[in-house]
Design a protein around this nucleic acid. Structure first.
Lengths: 138, 138
DNA sequence: TTATGTGCAAAACATTTGCAGGAGT
DNA sequence: ACTCCTGCAAATGTTTTGCACATAA
């Protein structure tokens, strides 16, 4: 969970981190690959996967294991929750007051050692809501 | 989200549902396949996937999109939360008081129409905790 | 110089799908 | 009979990995 001492600062890593920092969406590995490839056309998809994984392990970025088929990555490390649109799959941040006691409450009612939690909301994003409205007026 | 009118009651479906009901774990599609195959050796993995998906859509069972690489299924439909062991990947239920206002709080601080939420705790399960203790005494 | 990282391609998984034959209603 | 469903196998999509060469420290 911490920056490894012998992790080299390569061009690939710099650019992956830069591109991830540019967006507020929560891109999949493949989306990061597409973004990075515009600046580094010969980068391999494997490199993107390897580095996203490594950065997530060292805590530089966040790996979101939300619903859907692909993992998503986030340059914002501060704890926050997510909403996923059930219609288009888009993932947004959500900022609400976190009860810090929630882990304690969970630990009291289980025999696990609780390390953390994540709340994933599901709903319809504004854009899809518009589309649905438009459709229902046929 | 509701039972389709013309969904046939086949042997395969009955047995999948029975086997899923027998366990309190949250098996992956492949684990369900293994369980069912003991009674129905010629069943195809595709059939298991198709039916789990169908049952989840009609609300008979729950499809858990928790972290990890595979989806998991649960015969218990009543709303509840989950803990996933970061060490062995095991998933257990967790029963805590749900603040029913939590969706409202989220809706107030976003422009999504919030439909629901899921909390996934992460921690170490009792068995892995024991193992870690044993190791640290080397 | 040398351990670590990269590109590439193949492999490994998880899941979905097309189709011809089989089974519920 | 007439759909819907199943088994099988092939296809698809995502992520991981082996290896020879390249590169940061």
């Amino acid at each position: 969970m911490e920056q490894l001492p012998n992790m080299r600062l390569t061009t690939q890593r710099q650019i992956i981190l830069e591109e991830l920092g540019k967006v507020t969406s929560h891109p999949t590995a493949n989306e990061v690959y597409d973004m990075v490839r515009k600046r580094l056309p010969r980068i391999g998809l494997g490199t993107v996967y390897r580095n996203l994984e490594l950065m997530a392990d060292s805590g530089i970025i966040l790996k979101l294991e939300v619903g859907g088929t692909q993992k998503r990555f986030d340059a914002t490390v501060a704890p926050h929750y997510h909403v996923r649109c059930t219609s288009c799959g888009k993932v947004d941040d959500i900022d609400i007051e976190v009860q810090s006691q929630i882990n304690q409450v969970a630990e009291n009612s289980s025999n696990y050692m609780i390390l953390g939690h994540h709340i994933e909301f599901s709903g319809i994003c504004p854009k899809c809501l518009e589309e649905k409205k438009a459709l229902s007026l046929h």
